[in-house]
Simulated scan of single mutants.
Amino acid sequence: MMKNRNRVFGEQGKNKAILSLIVIVFFAGSCNFFDNDNNKQKEKPELLVYCGITMINPMQEVAEYVEKEKCCIIRITKGGSGNLLNAIKINKTGDLYLPGSYSYILQGKEAGIIDTSQLVGYNMAAIVVPKGNPLNISNDPIVFADNKYKTIFADPNSGSIGRMAATIFEKRGIKDEALYNAMRLSTDSKDITKAIINGEADIGINWIATTQWKENRDKLDGIIIDEKYAPVKKLVLSRLIYSKHPEIAGFFIETAAGPIGELIFSNYGFINHFEHYHSSQKQ
């Protein structure tokens, strides 16, 4: 187990603001891309990335780096991991997919839409509360069975944090009680964050990384849940079989999984390989 697992998180990392657009377009700086035969500027290759909402910030930074290195344009569509997977299956287009849980990658492999994959980091669930934890909430998920609290968590059918919440409640033996007490089910991690900040809910289940973003860390704390209820989740980035630019997509994966990506993801509150190894050694 990690040292001091019950501590409240909220002061780590140097983060950049999340853009509010559903599709974010990053333009490369000043790379030249010419057709030498006709001396005309070629169109830059465009890649489409499907990204779970919680990972949008680090993926934005990786995309900016790749754009400059490969003279390309990268478009990122964000949303719930399950909804994104369904969109890929229907549209049959896109280059990369990063869900919040490896289970979606397994589904993608079963559907035959995943080409190659690589681990880029880890995430863990937390009980999210207003800054300072005014209600003195513990790290025991049993609090979601107590009707004196206004609770919120995601629909397990919409994304990875919803599936994780369902897993936590089932392992704790409070699945029915937690569902009954919930004021509503959210669609994704962003909606949970908003509900806590606005005072709509007292507590929620969300990814710990969301509490360490620049726009949230002065408003939220995350209380780590024991791993016997909330196991650490692998973040796996995959290239899709529909990729029109597999070489650039492969370079994106290598960057995200390498030292540059590891530093970027760590800055946004995600666990790197070193931290996960030492955490597992303590269990």
Rank of each mutant, 00 (worst) to 15 (best):
L106R: 15
E69V: 08
L85S: 04
L106F: 03
S20R: 13
A111D: 15
N39K: 14
K171A: 03
Y277R: 14
S101A: 15
T116P: 01
L98S: 01
G108E: 12
N157Q: 14
I76G: 01
A195S: 15
A87D: 15
Y104W: 11
E177V: 10
G79Q: 07
I105C: 09
N139D: 15
I271T: 09
Y180W: 10
C51G: 06
E200S: 10
F274A: 06
R7L: 09
S238Q: 06
N39G: 02
T77K: 08
F153E: 03
P141Q: 09
I168N: 04
K219Y: 13
I205Q: 05
N216F: 03
L106M: 13
E46Y: 09
I192V: 10
P130M: 00
P134H: 10
G13D: 14
E215P: 03
K40F: 07
V23K: 12
I105E: 03
K78Y: 12
K78A: 09
E110G: 09
D95G: 03
L19H: 06
V232L: 04
A87S: 15
V143S: 09
I253Y: 03
S101W: 07
D37W: 04
I105H: 05
A111N: 14
K16F: 14
N91S: 10
N36D: 05
K78N: 05
G10N: 05
